[in-house]
């Protein structure tokens, strides 16, 4: 009897270990594969020069810059809106059917395919608001795309701030807004950033939402305002792999671009992680 139970336990542990291993190996495999194929084209020139000769030569600098602009724009729109929504939902709203409905709506938003966001952005920002295909329209679309992630993470972070902090502040005759702003929000910030990191990664890597709203097939000039369209890494990869003039000739550049995209996403995550780590060090309870 004991033996059987012990066997069952070992089998289960083995299964769980194997799952973790498969995930790690897959991730490692992808990164290794990209590195092996993309490594050779990476050079200073590749990341600082625009494409030339119908994109079969030259670098990808405009696309790198475009992705950075779009990601920062998405954060600038998604973070304040998402945090403000989460503050309303957790701190102010009276919990009831209406709030449950809003939460269901947010979850649905998270499940909407990204191409639908792209079409929405095209119809709403590009055409109705007349922003044209631009950094602004793309950032807004991406900002809305990552909103559910940021709201979810922010709500969890706000809820994890001990209720006793709120009570202590309110009991001093400090207003609800001041309590939220001075006590609750600073203590929730590391958690909010953790969630935002996920959103940031997604914003940088998405292709469909920016395809109709921001990304240019090719432009060698850099954007001079938020109303200009830009090249972007994910879309550039898509273009090179499917619609280029000479797909075979651009193969190494494709791998190189993928490598740069992965590096940019990891880089942005790393910065966010460092900021979070710094804030956590100041977390004192």
């Amino acid at each position: 009897m004991m033996r059987w139970r012990y066997l069952k336990q070992s089998a289960f542990f083995a299964l769980v270990r194997a799952s973790a291993l498969i995930i790690t190996l897959t991730l490692g495999g992808i990164i290794l594969y990209i590195l092996m194929h993309g490594y050779s084209v990476i050079s200073w020139e590749f990341i600082t020069k625009p494409p030339t000769d119908s994109m079969t030569q030259g670098g990808i600098m405009p696309a790198i810059l475009g992705t950075i602009y779009l990601t920062l724009g998405a954060i600038a729109i998604g973070l304040p809106l998402g945090v403000a929504s989460a503050i309303y939902l957790t701190e102010y709203a009276i919990q009831g059917r209406m709030i449950r409905l809003i939460r269901v709506g947010i979850n649905c938003l998270a499940g909407v395919p990204s191409v639908v966001f792209g079409l929405f952005g095209l119809a709403f920002f590009v055409i109705i608001f007349k922003f044209g295909s631009s950094i602004l329209a793309g950032s807004l679309t991406l900002g809305f795309l990552i909103l559910p992630t940021i709201i979810g993470a922010s709500e969890e972070a706000l809820k994890s701030v001990p209720q006793t902090f709120r009570e202590a502040s309110l009991a001093l005759g400090v207003s609800k807004w001041q309590t939220t702003y001075r006590i609750v929000l600073p203590n929730a910030l590391p958690g909010i950033l953790t969630g935002s990191i996920l959103g940031i990664g997604r914003a940088a890597g998405e292709t469909a939402p920016i395809m109709f709203t921001a990304a240019a097939f090719f432009t060698s000039k850099l954007p001079s305002s938020i109303f200009d369209e830009v090249m972007a890494l994910p879309y550039h990869i898509y273009v090179l792999a499917t619609a280029g003039t000479n797909i075979e000739a651009t193969r190494p550049i494709q791998y190189g671009t993928v490598l740069v995209l992965v590096a940019v996403v990891l880089g942005i995550n790393l910065v966010a992680i460092l900021i979070r780590g710094y804030m956590r060090r100041n977390k004192r309870w």
Binding site: T164, A168, A171, I183, K283
Partner: peptide
């Protein structure tokens, strides 16, 4: 609440 202060069961200083 400014005129009526309160001390709670568990000490709850701010971080």
């Amino acid at each position: 609440r400014k005129k009526v202060g309160m001390v709670f069961q568990k000490p709850n200083p701010f971080p």
